[in-house]
Design a protein around this nucleic acid. Sequence first.
DNA 1: CTGAAAGCGCTAACAA
DNA 2: TTGTTAGCGCTTTCAG
Lengths: 348, 348
Amino acid sequence: MAQDQRRTTIVDVARHAGVSTKTVSRVLNGEPHVTEDLKRRVREAAAAINYHPNMLARALVQRRSHLIGLVYENPSPSYVVDLQMGVLHRLRDEHYRLVVIPIASIAEHEADVVGLLRSAALDGVVLAPPASDSPRIMADLDAAGIRFARIAPTRLLDAGPGNLLDDQAAAREIAAHVIALGHRDIGIIKGEPTHASADMRLAGYRDAFAAAGLPIRADRVKQGHYTHDSGYAAACSLLASPDRPTAILAQNDDMAVGALIAAREAGLSVPGDLSIAGFDDSDVARIAWPAITTIRQPVFDMAVAAADMVVAQLRGTEADMRRHHRHELIVRQSTGPAPHRGIAGTAS
Amino acid sequence: MAQDQRRTTIVDVARHAGVSTKTVSRVLNGEPHVTEDLKRRVREAAAAINYHPNMLARALVQRRSHLIGLVYENPSPSYVVDLQMGVLHRLRDEHYRLVVIPIASIAEHEADVVGLLRSAALDGVVLAPPASDSPRIMADLDAAGIRFARIAPTRLLDAGPGNLLDDQAAAREIAAHVIALGHRDIGIIKGEPTHASADMRLAGYRDAFAAAGLPIRADRVKQGHYTHDSGYAAACSLLASPDRPTAILAQNDDMAVGALIAAREAGLSVPGDLSIAGFDDSDVARIAWPAITTIRQPVFDMAVAAADMVVAQLRGTEADMRRHHRHELIVRQSTGPAPHRGIAGTAS
DNA sequence: CTGAAAGCGCTAACAA
DNA sequence: TTGTTAGCGCTTTCAG
């Protein structure tokens, strides 16, 4: 195990092949203007002495680490997986590597985020919510010369390359679906308040409620955090009294699954006694039983596109720096007709 | 956006503070033997000209990229998430970053893996199965001077730091549990054959079967790939004929969930008509309905320990380089007593 | 088409 | 306690 004897360098290869280091460099980087003969000699020499280029040296002189970061907060594992797979998919055949940068609370650490990225020598980053909505982070990134692309930003849409989604319209659609099933008393489980999507989705619900002439009752809105457990807890509190809603709109699928379990424990059948709708269409929505009615959010595609935007900036090539992504209502088994129970409005 | 005007360097700070570059370096790296006065002057100068050290230059001279890789194959998202969270957990307060290296088929690309890692300038890697069982990869890693630690290796246990798990004993336990419930005709869904765990677990099942005097029928063993869909397909084929098993042992939870869905579609109640057991105790096992009886495999803990081993090697500190991790049988609702159906053995 | 020399920005070794 | 001098291993001028 030849651990620490001085590693072979480009100089060794050059000497071995009887050429200059620059020629070796040219051959190894596939630059033109080298005779076949020299190319061959260099390749043979490199193989003979088991040479492997030092990427750090190359990175220093090129000012390119070939590292791209993915910045996200923790809440939903399945969301993060989709995101990561999307970025990796786009990076697969590029010479870029993915560094994952989870941050406990972006809201609290807003001022330190870019310092962290700097110290990782990243060439670019994909910003997932809520980092994708932080003017501070984007400004710091610009100042640091780190390229970025945003996933599902909701404001300052001109502040940088973005992959847009109409959260509000999507929320309106799924709420309308539930209302159309006859539900009049509907509980809402909000997402983490530091994510702008929570408010956007609430606004969408509100639109649908208003269109149907329904009020939004404050006591029917519970705060969650986009986590399974928070969804469970919120649902428990919604279902605690006999005067309970006949449907629950959860702002993501993890919370919807939490609600599903709460309902099961409360002895309620879904969707017989209670309808539950989620958001995101993550894996768990399909696996749960009954499978969850949700909004398909093309997280994977957005991540692919975001990675593409970062790579394009780095290479100076052209690319759409603003793309719109379409959501889709996916009706599954967790929503059904409202149970009979008095005439309408607030239950008896 | 001060993008490309020459970045400020340590020389600028030195000049600004009226000291040598080495002194700046010392202050910035927290080395001792610098007067408070100089420290302050250096810090102020750095802040004044908005200096940020170039990590690539530092990495080159220190021969340390501070990058640690996680090498894995794709099959189960929830397994990968646990793994990754474990490594990240250990790295959180270290000055190391995580680079994710998914590889489509390690068996096919065995010879290229370390080349890939080299070109990512990694200081160390955590090897998940099946890379953790590849002598070739470990030898190449040694030759390249890249430190590593193994997750759940099954052979050549002395070839490198490892986090061990007794797959065979665990499989024996869960099979024994199912047999104890009265099942005599049991189907098996194997995992991806390039993962040694698939054979280990099969051996464990075999032990339990033998202890109960049951045969393993070749037509009751179906090949899967540790994916949801492969589990679904395998279960469909097991459940196709009326002469079907009364229980299914799936070698991971994703496949167990696939089997669950196949059972549901076949109109079978679980565990009334059919018991299903998984392996891993990933998130999906808890979320599925009925919740899946499984083996808890401390993937997160193993990942933490593996990251710890890598970091310890890099810092030259002491650490256990061989740790055993305990599994645990988790009985949930997906397994129950065998339905009555003739006397015993092969069904009527 | 090829090579010599000059750095990239930092830290290690050695002096002072 | 501080500074000077060499590199780390590669690519980029710019000559030849």
